[in-house]
């Protein structure tokens, strides 16, 4: 994706390096797609009673919910990191060096990307647990879950100096809250 964007050569403005753009796109599109798939998978497995076989074994219900989250999040985080590395390489050649600047932007991009995807994925889990059907899950995820996933962008948009820690904290806290709600509802659910 990073290579394709480079070939397409979009005008990203003076303040947005290519690294940031590519990771933002991956985290936004990839995160949304992954979260929709996650929600659909949970709703489908719930309706098919796939979880019955897990719930009658000696494991805690939170384990099932968090396993789903980490399985998907790990995959898309790796995809995002790969895109970021490719973006850094391209930026290095396009900007003719200046590794310190590129690295700084890359760290910010990575923080935004990982945080947005964490929020998307946890929203996907929550919507999957709550939604009564696949259709409702997809609609709520696209129009609701996607909106909430931009929360970690706030520190960058508000021009806070050194936004990386704020982005990470905001992403982690939002994800944890969404996951906790999902775990609570799943634990109380009767199958």
């Amino acid at each position: 994706m990073a290579v394709l964007l480079h070939l397409w050569s979009p005008y990203t403005g003076e303040e947005m390096p290519f690294t940031l753009l590519s990771t933002l796109l991956v985290s936004s599109i990839g995160g949304t797609l992954a979260a929709v798939m996650l929600a659909v998978s949970i709703v489908h497995e719930k309706s098919q009673h796939v979880y019955d076989l897990f719930l009658v074994r000696p494991l805690k219900r939170w384990y099932i919910v968090t396993s789903k989250f980490f399985a998907v999040y790990t995959c898309i985080a790796i995809a995002s990191i790969l895109t970021l590395i490719m973006g850094i390489v391209i930026d290095y050649f396009v900007m003719g060096g200046a590794p310190a600047v590129i690295l700084n932007e890359a760290i910010q991009s990575l923080a935004v990307s990982l945080s947005m995807m964490a929020v998307s994925s946890s929203a996907g889990v929550l919507i999957g647990v709550v939604a009564p059907s696949v259709l409702v899950g997809v609609i709520v995820m696209i129009y609701g879950g996607n909106q909430i996933s931009v929360l970690p962008l706030l520190p960058s948009m508000l021009n806070i100096s050194n936004p990386v820690p704020f982005t990470l904290v905001l992403g982690a806290v939002t994800s944890c809250v969404l996951l906790l709600i999902a775990v609570f509802i799943f634990s109380k659910k009767q199958f």
Binding site: E45, Q48, H49, V50, D52, L53, V56, R57, P58
Partner: peptide, 18 residues
Amino acid sequence: KGEVHKMLGYLPQNVAFQ
């Protein structure tokens, strides 16, 4: 139920797997 689940085997009416 954690203790019961250790000694329980269950086959649901419409068994479904991943």
